[in-house]
Design a protein around this nucleic acid. Sequence first.
DNA 1: TATTATAGTGACCAATCGGTCACTTGTCAA
DNA 2: TTGACAAGTGACCGATTGGTCACTATAATA
Lengths: 197, 197
Amino acid sequence: MENSTRERILDEALIHFAENGYKGANLRDLAARLGLSKSALYKHYESKEAIWNALLDKMEAYYARRVGSVDNPPQTPATLEEFISLSMGMIRFSVCDPQIILTRKLLLTEQFHDERVRRLASKHFLEGMTNIFAGLFVAMMESGLLRKEDPTMLAFAYTAPVSVLIHHSDREAEHREEMLNRIEAFIRYFVLAHKAD
Amino acid sequence: MENSTRERILDEALIHFAENGYKGANLRDLAARLGLSKSALYKHYESKEAIWNALLDKMEAYYARRVGSVDNPPQTPATLEEFISLSMGMIRFSVCDPQIILTRKLLLTEQFHDERVRRLASKHFLEGMTNIFAGLFVAMMESGLLRKEDPTMLAFAYTAPVSVLIHHSDREAEHREEMLNRIEAFIRYFVLAHKAD
DNA sequence: TATTATAGTGACCAATCGGTCACTTGTCAA
DNA sequence: TTGACAAGTGACCGATTGGTCACTATAATA
């Protein structure tokens, strides 16, 4: 399996593009970080833009797989406390995993410079999370955990604040644990405000 | 008042930096857009970085003035409907004003490349809006419009979703009116869920 | 063994960038 | 009138960038 260099290039490209932006990333540093010379990159990709597009392809594929997993969503929690720990588990992973952090950075910083990134950002930051939880909330309303109301609106009211706090954690990594506490505090507030009586 | 060229440069720099990023912006285009030669810029600022810093100074000053206006906040609305139209007025302005749109773009896209931008982004996207509305909600609870609960948490639960929709409007300008409708729908949902009985 | 394809190298190229400098122009005060 | 100064110009510079090319090394195949 010696096409692994192609993959290693993409892994490094994510770091480089996320930290410096598309224009700010340069192929010499990227190659050096891989222990390669710059011209070696051109044996695997025909241009900087080709690396960029391959990276976006990979991100789109990853995202499509995640959305596919929405069809078999996380099983409905039996209690509100279980919902909280389920949520916090997902969020903690999303906030700590380096690759996901870099992906969010790239989506944020390049969303106005690239059409594909813009579309991915809209999916990721607005529709994606909301749809997952809308489905979950429907089930939780039917099982009598949550008060009955518009599940899409409820999911949006839930995911948007979490999303804002995750972005804040990305900005100030040294406050990550504090942000996770604020996220849990919000979730508990939210559950309390919308649970069935 | 012939220092106006200095100001014109900053106005154009906001556009240029917001659309292309710090690294992507180049002084030749910026000068050309102003009807100047590139070397003329150096009669007013000593470097690209100096223009950048002057622009951030201006943004910080503007933000400080806006925060200063929190000491004399918008007067407490007498009814919930008045609160909704007050909010929508502020939001509509913030979503439509070109300069504010560009400022948000710049804060978003450069927050990981510049320390001052990072701090401004944290203030603007997290604490800023929340603090304004926390004060307003305290007054509305005391006047019996809203159910009594943690005003800071309530303000966060209110401003974060609005903020997410504003960002979406920035991304997809052609859906601006649709986003404004979604914002109003959310605000009405929010008011209904938290009004005093 | 000879051949061929793949991966990698380093020197080089043209374009672009931020920045400098000698020079011109216009204005206003002495 | 003249001199000083601020504003603006265009040619130029060194550094960096994405990209090319002739070349080497290695390993598998015929």
